[in-house]
């Protein structure tokens, strides 16, 4: 069976110069990520700001060249595809619906763009398909003639979803699609995305820093830290039995609406990760509450135990004990 998305040891390096005399800053934004996502699944990717989630997403969308590695979409190399073919397979939904819609275009033209770019769809067909997709995401016909500035945040995100789905792609990459929305609107959009996935048999890559949202929508979850997936597991297992110390810290920092429980101590300390300066050994060791001496030198890359990726030296010895 071919996977919807297959990512093989992908890396991306950014080189920036702060000034003439300053040394070059080399940011390893994505530092060796591999995974295969079967069709119809939803991979949730969580992690702190700057850990490389968006960089990975943009590479999978073909918007950013890869430094190393290979990405296959629907069994074929992304690098070998032309832009029209790629657009028919994979589409994005971005975080900020205020910047993801061209402020100078009407809703109907925004949604028609992927169809128009195919170059072989008549104007009449385009119009019909746009209106059908807008209706599908809950945007009424009279809104089609408005400009983005005249829409609410939720409506804009619906328009962005309509644009992503109008070509009936197989894969949708959602980069924090609800982080900029209010909770009541977030719930509407999450329900819409779940419904569309069922009806249109879509595969999602769903990036979020909200673990509860990921738990709600994902079938499997990858936890990203400084450019790598440090843990990856089916959603129930990951939330029931988190194995990587960073996953545990992330989970314990979620504030559920249970009064009286107070704020938990996350135990990650004062140091903040810097992708221009990745620690040797285990990249998490400066913040790890259970770090061992050998964690400073020995990198736990690609450790798989019991079919689960857990990049921690403790994972082999201490399976399931915590």
């Amino acid at each position: 069976m071919t996977c919807a998305v297959e990512v093989r040891d992908v890396r991306r390096v950014f080189r920036t110069h702060a000034g003439m005399l300053a040394p070059e800053r080399v940011v390893r934004a994505v530092d060796g990520v591999s995974f295969a996502l079967p069709a119809g699944h939803v991979l949730g990717i969580v992690g702190e700001s700057g850990c490389g989630k968006s960089t990975l997403a943009r590479m999978i969308l073909g918007l950013l060249p890869i430094s190393e590695g290979e990405i296959l979409v629907d069994g074929r190399s992304l690098a070998a595809m032309d832009r029209r073919e790629r657009a028919r397979l994979i589409q994005p939904v971005f975080q900020d619906p205020f910047s993801s819609l061209n402020p100078r275009q009407r809703v109907r033209d925004i949604v028609a763009l992927p169809l128009a770019a195919q170059g072989n769809i008549s104007g009449r067909q385009q119009r019909d398909q746009v209106m059908e997709m807008l209706a599908r995401v809950g945007i009424s016909a009279e809104i089609a003639d408005r400009l983005p500035a005249q829409l609410s945040g939720g409506q804009r995100q619906r328009v962005a979803i309509a644009r992503a789905l109008v070509l009936h792609p197989r894969i949708v990459v959602c980069d924090e699609p609800t982080s900029a929305l209010d909770v009541s609107v977030q719930a509407q959009i999450l329900n819409l995305l779940a419904e569309l996935r069922r009806d249109l048999r879509l595969t999602y890559l769903f990036i979020s820093h909200n673990l509860a949202v990921v738990e709600h929508i994902a079938t499997e979850v990858a936890v990203m830290y400084l450019g790598r997936f440090v843990e990856r597991a089916p959603v129930d297992e990951l939330f029931r039995d988190p194995r990587h110390p960073y996953t545990r810290a992330l989970l314990s920092s979620v504030l559920t609406p249970e009064p009286g429980n107070g704020i938990p101590d996350v135990g990650l300390g004062e140091t903040y990760p810097d992708p221009a300066n990745i620690p040797p050994g285990c990249r998490f060791h400066p913040r790890c509450p259970v770090a061992l001496n050998r964690c400073r030198t020995q990198a736990p890359d690609n450790i798989v135990t019991h079919g689960r990726l857990t990049e921690c030296l403790l994972a082999e010895g201490a399976q399931g004990t915590r």
Partner: peptide, 26 residues
């Protein structure tokens, strides 16, 4: 009540059911 129904609560998620939501906007 509507707001409370909108938020997905970790480890209490029912994935087969839609989240509660409030139609419309402020």
């Amino acid at each position: 009540r509507g707001l409370l129904r909108c938020i997905p609560v970790p480890r209490q998620v029912r994935r087969d059911e839609p989240l509660g939501s409030i139609p419309g906007v402020v």
